[in-house]
Design a protein around this nucleic acid. Structure first.
Lengths: 163, 163
DNA sequence: TATTGTTATACTCTATAACTATA
DNA sequence: TATAGTTATAGAGTATAACAATA
């Protein structure tokens, strides 16, 4: 029957709705973990909507900022900071190198590289930072300065628990 | 040279360290989005460490709780609640069905199914809930009751902003 | 015509394990 | 022996697009 050649409309362009009317969430409404997860999804969506055109993701943005502020950092060290495997960093840096944002400089330890932003990289990071700051202001616009500070403090407490 | 037949030690069993000594995080320390992301990674790790042996993930746990508390929900509706594509729900429910936790019941609308937990599913969800509650108490143990309430409130504000 | 579940496919992210060149 | 970067590979998770059955 339906031999429609036109693509169906995208079905997943809806935004994540953290609490849908008529749905019972039970324990999920009480869990700190789910509250953080909900917020994370919501924030990620706004980040993507703001910066996907630039080809930048939270992960890549973080990498660039870490390299910018810790020039000469090695790939292994970066993998530790980002919390991902070394093999993952290779792919990330390859792309940055292709885009002319990062360079692998020779190190005194000839097994490793010193990572640095190129001139172009520095320029782009300034742009990205501005866009990310605007995004962050937007998602946190419902909070006043004191509430933002509270939120950061409460979240950092959770991160600093003993593993 | 190295023809070692033994596997190298796993390199990524370290826990994510939200703030590594000697690393300059710059703007990342100020962004609400990054604070949430850090907490999310940290919480996800504890969840996984606690429940991976059960084969349960935050995503799957949420699905089961939603089905438990909204019996007869359709797959499309569940995809909306979870914020994922319908095709993703198919795979999730397939696995639950294989494990005997969820059943697809015939619906009056013969295009769709009514999802329900099986007896076994109900039993397992009770176990999972207990484990997840313990995990949540653990990750939020650094907060008192009032701080937990504050955190939930602040995070829900972020989710409820206009998209 | 539109919707539900399904399938096929592809893409991203990630981890594991092995390799190489150095140390 | 150990470490840094690399490669190959595999497994999640996800989205897109199409299809059959049904509305």
């Amino acid at each position: 029957m339906s031999r429609s050649q036109k693509p169906e409309s995208k079905e997943n362009t809806f935004f994540f709705n953290a609490r849908i009317d008529g749905i019972e969430y039970d324990i999920l409404d009480d869990l700190i973990g789910y509250a953080v997860r909900r917020a994370q999804i919501s924030i990620y969506e706004d980040f993507t909507a703001s910066l996907a055109d630039e080809g930048i993701t939270p992960q890549r943005f973080s990498s660039l900022v870490i390299i910018e502020n810790n020039p000469g950092i090695s790939q292994t060290r970066l993998s530790e900071v980002m919390g991902i495997a070394r093999s993952g960093v290779v792919a990330i840096i390859d792309k940055f190198e292709d885009a002319g944002l990062v360079e692998r400089q020779a190190s005194s330890d000839r097994r490793s590289y010193n990572l640095r932003l190129t001139k172009e990289g520095q320029k782009q990071v300034r742009r990205y930072k501005k866009a990310v700051q605007e995004h962050d202001n937007r998602i946190a616009a419902v909070l006043n300065a004191s509430e933002k500070e509270q939120l950061r403090t409460l979240l950092s407490k959770i991160c600093m628990r003993s593993p």
